[in-house]
Amino acid sequence: MDNNISITNTTTPKGSHLSEKERAQIEILHKEGYSNRAIARKLNRNHQTINNEIKRGTTCQVRRQKSRKGKVYTYFSTIYSCDAGQARYNRNRLNSGRRGKYLLMKDFIKELDNLLLGRYDGFKYAPYGALKKLKPKFKDLDLPCVTTIYNWINTGITETNPIDLVKKPKLRPRKVKQETQKRCFGKSIDERPVEANLRSEIGHFEIDTIQGKKMATDKVILVLTDRKSRYNIVKVINFKTSQDVNKAILELKAEYGSKLFKTITADNGSEFSELNKVHSEVYYAHPYSPWQRGSNENNNGFLRRVITKGKAISSFPEEEIYYVSDIMNEYPRRIFNGLSAEEVFHIHYVLPSGPRVA
């Protein structure tokens, strides 16, 4: 035995695993005939740790030798290999820890993928909405949280890939564009009542239009979003003109009751230039500031999942447009702790003839 072998003797934290370097040192010392206890003292480790490691990393080697008469003799020997020990350690680490929850809920993951990929009605759900939708069906399961679902998607456990998601939040600095030539048709959003700003009651709406192809002959979707409940009201109109918008507003007042519409916040599009003729409390957002009607723009994004840009609105049946709007109103919202916009809306307001059915 060579007693002059230099081994770095450093203090190791209690409970720490052997490193690849330490395994190489164990192999050298073991070949030199050091006992397990002697190796342990050299590495400042417990002797049982060395004993367990040598057992894990010991491999069987086979050597064959052919005699002069042609007979083959086979010899077996065992030897500790630091590479074998490291490979065994890596395999054990992969199998350590608690087994993933996803292994016990294959049916849930299948249904989750169906909602995330829009296989039922072509409408893709976000992870939060899909979880709330599936909760009654899988009430006996210990369901994962939204963060866990995102982790499953990112690690490939689900069929859904990150690119398949409707959208992932991306926080980018807002660029404020100052333009002075844009006209304002009435009272500024700065004059809007405090109830509308605080979303403290039903009846304060944001308004916008959705176009398909930018053609003068194509139909347009008029969208109104209640600021408190995020409830969406849509109306298909023939043209993107102030006359058609005003006519639609009067029809909606007759359908939903004029008391519902307290204030309306619009952008500075020409189709809203005469909105004051049919409603007294109309306010206009600052030019080039769509975030001032954030709820409206967010709901437009829902509709755009099905009613895509560049495709004529006239090519969609009106029943389909109203159906998509109804799905959106029934969609579970995180901001309401899983309640839908429709549920919140009807908690605070009862329609004159009951809820509208498209």
Rank of each mutant, 00 (worst) to 15 (best):
V282C: 11
P287N: 05
E320I: 12
N299I: 09
F336I: 08
Y331I: 03
I313Y: 01
I307D: 00
E297A: 10
P287V: 13
S325E: 14
N329A: 06
N299V: 10
E281N: 15
Y283C: 04
R333Y: 00
G310L: 08
S325K: 12
V306H: 05
P332Y: 03
H286G: 07
F316A: 03
V306C: 09
K311I: 14
N296A: 07
F316V: 05
H279Y: 08
F316E: 02
F336E: 10
P317N: 10
T308W: 04
S314K: 12
I335W: 01
R305P: 00
N299K: 12
Y284I: 06
L303H: 02
K309Q: 10
L303C: 05
R333W: 04
I321E: 08
S314C: 07
H286N: 13
F336P: 05
L275Y: 06
N298M: 08
F302P: 00
S325L: 01
I307T: 00
H279M: 14
F336Y: 14
P290Q: 09
L275M: 15
K311W: 00
G301M: 09
N300M: 13
P332L: 03
V324C: 04
K277N: 14
N276T: 11
E319F: 08
S280D: 15
V282G: 11
R305A: 10
V306I: 15
V278P: 05
Y288N: 13
I321H: 04
I321N: 04
T308I: 13
N298K: 04
I313P: 01
P332H: 01
Y284Q: 01
E318H: 08
Y284W: 03
Y323W: 13
N298Y: 03
